[in-house]
Design a protein around this nucleic acid. Structure first.
Length: 580
RNA sequence: GCCGAUAUAGUUUAGUGGUAAAACAGAUCCUUGGUAAGGAUCAGCGGACAGUUCAAUUCUGUCUUUCGGCACCA
């Protein structure tokens, strides 16, 4: 979670700091031109055109030093209102600012802010003087497309953050350090959950311990969906080009699809599961009485994602979607959506994950269907969301070309937001595949169709869980739940083996650490591997048929009967509690 | 794909134009222990391909991987 204080003061502070950054860059790179420098959730950035020059990470220190120097000098920040003509004249040599001025609404009040030798076009507000900018840090530098369009040239973006108290800055930098320790890429390696290979960029390998986690999640998914009235299918990984032409993917998604020739015919590896699901729906006639049909598939898809997008388990080229397609009559949609929101909420809560819901609406250009039907669909989704008791931000124009959607966003350990769950209304596929059901008058009707995922992708969800729990999984998910440590591998090994067997027979995932190592050493290792329970067994436990428990992250010890311990673990597993 | 960085043992890192070091992990032996690092010995390394050079892990180039962003997206 981000630890940025909700303080209105931090906005002008960070915005002024962006100006300070620009001023320092201007001193060091006099030919620099500036685009925009907004405040963001975590600080600010400024987009800069340096011509052929580049700012590298190692240059940030030098820029920061210059910023400190200017801040110490303590110039006042002076606001000035300009007429459009004055503004155009003032920035006549700056094509970026001219662009901004020309794109302003006619009645906008144009202002600029000056501090010493630096003036920037800006609507403000700002702090009174640069000397208020004391506790800031430049964080990273990267490229960023002008106006966010990859067709445009790339500017350089410098990110930073500013606080009004030194301890807040320290706390934030500390948070970044701590977040790095939770990084799923790091923990995934340390805990032997998954690996990546240069022979398959974006194609993760799941290791035995990661497979336990994965299978548990998938089994859990099947159980919960069975309770919710879902049935399940598995459709082929590869299907012929003609199918993708019918679905529209060949036209709209071609660049992201992997293809291959089989017997002189083109086949594509599925980037989505829906077309296969359509064929299953069409495999028989459906009555209005059978609706809604909820058809789930843990379907592995492949997409050719841009190389620069790949990121651990968060962004991969093959992943398993916990997909389902729901076919309904129109009068069933709202209730089904509300039900789904509650279902997703229940699942996320179980993991202790917080999330935000956004409604993505009709794209401006590329969409199918009538505006009226889009408006109706968007309204249904939004109302269902409100009736289910959730806020719903609007994300205009971000819907899929075939329909609007509700997206569920979860944060990673660095506060970056990832889309996991989504509920999408599809106005496209039922039409393209000519899906029908028979109504009470014996006539064919077109069903409404919903795509939805809860985990989003199993891979991404696992990545998020690793970071969320910092690798210390709840008992029901932990790849190893218990490690048995005999005090002496000579005298207590028999009892340790007895305990180990008893736990194994009870269905508990247990390991026996009978290595010839010091007790303290083995206990440390159980902690670093983040195993929920360590059982220490010596003379006194052996005599009384008890176990001495140490819970992960807790130094207290507790002695209870072996049978009691087995019940304890089973209870934690059954309730799927997050407590040890 | 774009901008920048990155690549040394299983892992984390150090170092060098003259063939590589440490810690942890591993193996063997000693130690037989009560809540986070006992000792000894052994084994193990330069992303790929070119170029410069008497000599390249080190310099240069290309490619690849990975990371931070951008764009894209589950």
């Amino acid at each position: 979670m981000m630890h940025i204080k909700e303080d209105a003061r931090l906005n002008p502070l960070n915005h002024s700091c962006a100006h300070l950054l620009a001023q320092a860059v201007k001193h060091l790179y006099p030919h620099a031109k500036f685009w925009v420098g907004p405040v963001i959730d975590s600080g600010f950035y400024y987009d800069i055109d340096l011509g052929d020059d580049v700012i590298k990470e190692e240059d940030l220190e030098k820029i920061e030093k210059e910023m400190k120097k200017i801040a110490k000098d303590g110039k006042k920040i002076i606001r000035k209102v300009l007429t459009r003509e004055e503004a155009l004249a003032m920035f006549q040599n700056d094509p970026y600012k001219i662009d901004l001025i020309q794109n302003m609404e006619a009645d906008t009040e144009i202002t600029c802010y000056s501090q010493g030798d630096f003036t920037d076009l800006c609507r403000g507000p700002h702090v009174e003087s640069v000397k208020e900018l004391k506790y800031f840090k430049l964080l990273k530098v990267s490229g960023a497309y002008f106006k966010g369009d990859s067709k445009n040239k790339m500017l350089q973006r410098v990110y930073g953050i500013c606080f009004d108290r030194e301890e807040d800055l320290k706390e934030y930098l500390n948070f970044l350090e701590e977040a790095k320790k939770r990084d799923h890429k790091k923990l995934g390696k340390e805990l032997e959950l998954f690996m990546l290979s240069e022979y398959g960029p974006g194609f993760p390998f799941f290791l035995p311990k990661g497979m336990i986690l994965r299978n548990l999640l998938e089994n859990f998914w099947y159980e919960e969906h069975t309770k919710e009235g879902y049935e399940f299918i598995k459709t082929p990984i590869m299907l012929s080009r003609e199918l993708w032409e019918v679905s529209g993917h060949w036209e709209n998604y071609r660049e992201n699809m992997y293809t291959s020739e089989i017997d002189e015919k083109t086949f594509a590896i599925k980037p989505m599961n829906c077309p296969g699901g359509m064929l299953v729906y069409k495999n028989k006639l459906h009555s209005y009485k059978d609706l809604p049909i909820r058809c789930g598939e843990l379907g592995q898809v492949h997409r050719h994602e841009a190389s620069g997008a790949l990121n651990g388990l968060f962004r991969v080229r093959t992943f398993t979607q916990d997909d389902a397609h729901i076919f309904m009559r129109e009068d069933q949609v709202e209730e089904e959506v509300m039900h789904l929101i509650a279902f997703i909420d229940r699942i996320y809560k179980l993991f202790g994950l917080t999330y935000e819901i956004e409604l993505s609406t009709r794209p401006e250009e590329k969409y199918i269907g009538t505006i009226a039907s889009w408006n109706r669909s968007e309204q249904i989704l939004q109302e269902a969301c409100h009736k289910a008791g959730h806020d719903c931000k609007i994300n205009p124009g971000d819907g899929a070309f075939y329909g609007p959607k509700l997206d569920f966003h979860i944060k990673d350990s660095l506060g970056r937001v990832w889309q996991c769950g989504t509920i999408q209304l599809d106005n496209n596929l039922p039409e393209r595949f000519d899906l029908t059901y028979i109504d009470q008058n014996g006539e064919k009707q077109r069903p409404i169709m919903l795509h939805r995922v809860i985990f989003g992708s199993i891979e991404r969800f696992i990545g998020i869980l690793i970071e969320h729990f910092g690798g210390a999984f709840p008992v029901w998910l932990a790849p190893v739940q218990v490690v048995v440590v005999p005090v002496s591998s000579e005298h207590h090994l028999d009892y340790a083996k007895e305990v180990y067997e008893a736990l194994k027979q009870a269905g508990i995932r247990v390991e026996l650490d009978d290595r010839n190592e010091k007790l303290g050493y083995r206990l440390r290792e159980a902690q670093t591997k983040k195993i929920p329970y360590t059982l220490i067994l010596g003379n006194q436990e052996q005599e009384k048929q008890t176990v001495n428990i140490r819970r992960h992250g807790n130094e207290e010890k507790e002695e209870i009967a072996l049978t009691q311990f087995i019940e304890l673990v089973q209870e934690k597993v059954n309730t799927k509690t997050l407590e040890y």
